[in-house]
Design a protein around this nucleic acid. Structure first.
Length: 290
DNA sequence: CCACAGGGCGGCA
DNA sequence: TGCCGCCCTGTG
């Protein structure tokens, strides 16, 4: 592995807290100096903001182009100011407040495999426990990495690859504290390893088809599929409807218990950037409630 | 002791 | 289709 550094100058619409704490990822942790450190499939990455510049530090696999990786992972090529303008076109006051609040949210382009398992685990769960479970799995089956990237030497465990996780028995997974989701994770892992379902293929499909394909896997319904599509497959039209989004949509836009109706409404209103709209609304509602 | 947490699934009308 | 109880586990 190697150390790498990349500086992204004059960043707009990019706030670390908003990006890492809007619910799309589980393995980024805030450091005492205000920077964030994440364990990714390519290695360990630390990010800090310095005036208008973003400084990325990495301890990553040798074959990774760090600059290209950061541009992709943090969605740096996307024009978020333009997207915000599109979302505000119909003079939507709720969206206006939400965007003002979460202006610096970026949708990360995460690893589809890790994202898939993570959101299967998220079902009827809470964030501390989701994080703990993912860490358990990584410690038990993932690659161990030691680095002094941010000062003192530390040990990290990368989330296991499909083949690494295939070594886990049901009993192993139960030890990881998955609860009733253990069989979902076990069977989904088997489906990926036996190529019954291919994430690389799904990533290339159009949204609707890709969603259906993902939902063939155990533990993946509409909401989890949309999270995978939005957070790891660049499908920005995906609009995950969870309990929080249901609440704010019911209060501000449309009264319905049906996730499908809410989703249809969102798509007609927010269009191909529905997923970004969802993140603004979600973050606004969550933080507002806290 | 009970409800509920960033859902999904299977059974039932 | 729409609705409901259940699925682990921790927390209030």
């Amino acid at each position: 592995m190697k150390k790498a550094e990349y500086v992204y100058k004059n960043a707009t619409c990019f706030d670390l807290k908003q990006t890492f704490e809007c619910g799309q990822c589980f393995r980024w942790k805030k450091e005492e100096n205000g920077s964030y450190t994440g364990v990714l499939n390519v290695g360990v990455v630390n990010v800090q903001k310095c005036n208008e510049d973003i400084i990325f530090l990495g301890f990553i696999d040798d074959d990774v182009d760090f600059e290209a990786f950061c541009e992709c992972y943090f969605d740096l090529k996307e024009d978020y100011e333009y997207i915000q303008k599109q979302l505000l076109k119909n003079n939507d006051l709720v969206m206006k407040k939400a965007i003002a609040y979460g202006n610096g949210i970026r949708i990360l382009n995460q690893d589809p495999w890790e994202t898939m398992i993570s959101f299967i685990i998220s079902a009827a769960n809470n964030i501390p426990r989701i994080t703990k479970t993912i860490n358990n799995i990584s410690e038990m089956f993932g690659r161990r990495v030691e680095t002094d990237l941010i000062g003192e030497k530390r040990t990290y465990y990368i989330f296991p690859t499909p083949s690494e996780l295939s070594r886990a028995s049901m009993a192993d997974l139960r030890e990881c504290n998955l609860g009733f989701r253990d069989k979902f994770v076990y069977n989904a892992t088997e489906s990926i390893n036996s190529s019954k379902v291919s994430l690389d293929t799904i990533r290339e499909l159009d949204y609707e088809v890709a969603r259906k394909e993902l939902m063939r896997l155990p533990g993946i319904g509409g909401k989890v599929a949309d999270c995978i599509l939005l957070f790891s497959m660049q499908k920005k039209e995906a609009f995950p409807v969870d309990t929080w989004i249901k609440k704010i949509m019911n209060e501000e836009y449309i009264e319905s218990k049906s996730a499908k109706k809410i989703e249809e409404f969102a798509k007609s209103r927010f269009g191909k950037f529905s997923g970004i709209a969802q993140q603004y609304l979600f973050y606004y509602k969550r933080e507002d409630a806290d």
